[in-house]
Each structure stands twice: as C-alpha cells, then as structure tokens.
Design a binder for these strands. Structure first.
Lengths: 147, 147
DNA sequence: CCAACTAGTCAAGTAGATTGACTAAATAGT
DNA sequence: ACTATTTAGTCAATCTACTTGACTAGTTGG
C-alpha cells in the first residue's frame, strides 16, 4: 500500500521538523553561523574528538568533504586540530571552548524541541519511539544529501 | 540530555535507511534512472496530477527547481505536461504509463523494506510508530536540503 | 480596462558535495 | 631490513542540485 511509502515521508518530515527546531533554537542562543550538519559533527566530536576519517564515516560523506567542513569550523573557532598521539598522519579534531558552549546550547534547544513532542505524545511514547528507531535505523547514513 | 539530540539523528538515519531501501528496490525492478526526490514527485502526482507550483510546495523547493525536475522526468518518459483546463498559464503534470509502472514498483519496494522493520519490531509497533509520527511531523518540509 | 498578481520558464550563479592526484606515514610480506 | 601496499589527510578541479533574478503570458480585481 501507499502506507509504507508514507512512512518514509513521515520520518523525513519528522526529522526535518526536529532538526530545524534545534537549528533555530541554537541560532537564537547566539550560534547563528552554523548549519545542522555542523551539529552532527559536534555530536561525533564530543567528548574525545575524532579524526577526519571518523567524521566522514559518521556523516556518510567523503573525507574531502569532512575536511572542508572541519576547515570551516576551525575558521569559526569551534574546533581545533591536534596531532594524533599514535599516528603522525592523523589529526584529532576536538571542540574548543566555544565549541562546547555551542554544544550546550544545542542540547538546550533539543530539549526544548522534544518537549513539544512530549506535550503531544507523552513521555512514554516518545521514549518508545526513540527505542524503536534505535533498533531499525542503521547508524551512519546521517545525511540524505544528493537525493 | 544528549538523548534529545540523538532522536533527530535516529529519525534522520531511519528515514535515510528506508528511503534508500525503496530507491534501491525500485532500481532493481528496472527504474534505475531516478533519484529518491523523483519518488516524492510521483507521490504528489498520483492519482490526478499536479501543477508545478503544487509540486514545488510539496517538495519544499522553488518553482524553478520543480520545473527542472519535471523537465527531467518528461525527458525520461515518466510524466507529461497537459494543459490546465481552467487556467491557460498553468500545466497539469501527470504520470505516463511508465510513470505508473514505476509507482507500482516503488510500492512493492516500500512494502519489502517495511517488512524488514516489521520483522524486528512487529506490526504493532510499526503501526504505532507511524501514527505517532503523523501527529508530530509537520507536512511539507519534505526535503532537508541546504543543510 | 488598466494595475497588480500568478504560473511557468530561461539564464546565470552558488554551495556543498564529488572524483582524481598527490604527500607523508604506517603496515605487511618476503 | 627493505620494498610494496595501504591509510590519513589535503589540494585542485569539477559536478549537480538548487537558488536568485529577470522575463512572458495569462488571470483577477478595482
């Protein structure tokens, strides 16, 4: 049936709604020079940082794209490149103080956004939803780009 | 908490997983020259067709982008432009026979994809999930573009 | 019946990705 | 131990899906 098709549209719509709410809330808290994609980078960076390759895999993009993204974040003061302790080729990308502040703001914005869902569905169902998704969503493939 | 942040990543990952499965399944059935975006156009076109403006709104893109998309689909034989009965400026974009065949293939692929979710979660929870999403996902905003 | 608006297209520009070629460092094979 | 292959990251060029801006043709309203 078309019901199965509708599910993907719903998931996409829901994801879009939530991501945009978080993005908007984060911007409102003083971090307006970022896109949602950057937030997904931050999520991978906390708490211990990550290499370019790990970021690329997390986002589901090429290393080159990840590298460009990191370069932009370095320029804006959100992350720093540190030498990798055990591999001189690699670099550890880590959040700066500003990066951590932004992450905190994003967490607030996310809580705020989800609160409106809880108001509609109840805490119970939101939790159930989250758990169900955890079981079917293959990690990685984070960005539905190039569709 | 970071749990709220995770929810958006999960939704996005789930949507991505499902959309790609449908896309792949449709391609496997003989329609390999399409992107997922085209599928969302088809969904709006069935059963009665739509104008360029309606397609644009459905996808959350500009009319120009929608127009280009339709042009591509015309070239590939999936849709046709018909004159609008009551407005000589407008055009009704409608599925061709091939367009309908592709839609049927996409439905099959979607059913197949959702079946694997049902195998994990059970019919019950998948239905509950769908209903929950229906209540929180704002329609439109289909494509999380420009992230 | 003229002014303002709407549907769609043409053309050019843009942002975020890609592929390809390269350097330097690590790992594996003999 | 020395060579060969693989891996981490970057530079450069390109691609592509989308945007903004300008326009034509048709519609609506005072």
């Amino acid at each position: 049936m078309a019901d199965e098709i509708a599910l993907s549209a719903l998931l996409l719509g829901a994801a879009s709604t939530l991501v945009e709410a978080i993005h908007e809330g984060t911007a409102r808290r003083g971090f307006a020079d970022l896109r949602p994609t950057h937030g997904f980078v931050f999520a991978r960076l906390a708490p211990d940082g990550a290499t370019i390759g790990q970021i690329a895999e997390h986002l589901g993009v090429t290393k080159q794209a990840a590298s460009q993204l990191v370069e932009e974040l370095v320029g804006k003061g959100y992350v720093e490149r540190h030498p990798h302790p055990g591999d001189a080729r690699a670099k550890i990308v880590a959040l700066t103080e500003r990066g951590w502040a932004c992450t905190a703001a994003a967490d607030e914005a996310a809580t705020e956004a989800v609160r409106s869902w809880i108001a509609v569905l109840g805490q119970e169902r939101v939790s159930a939803l989250t758990n169900d998704l955890r079981r079917v969503a293959r990690p990685g493939r984070l960005r539905p780009a190039a569709w």
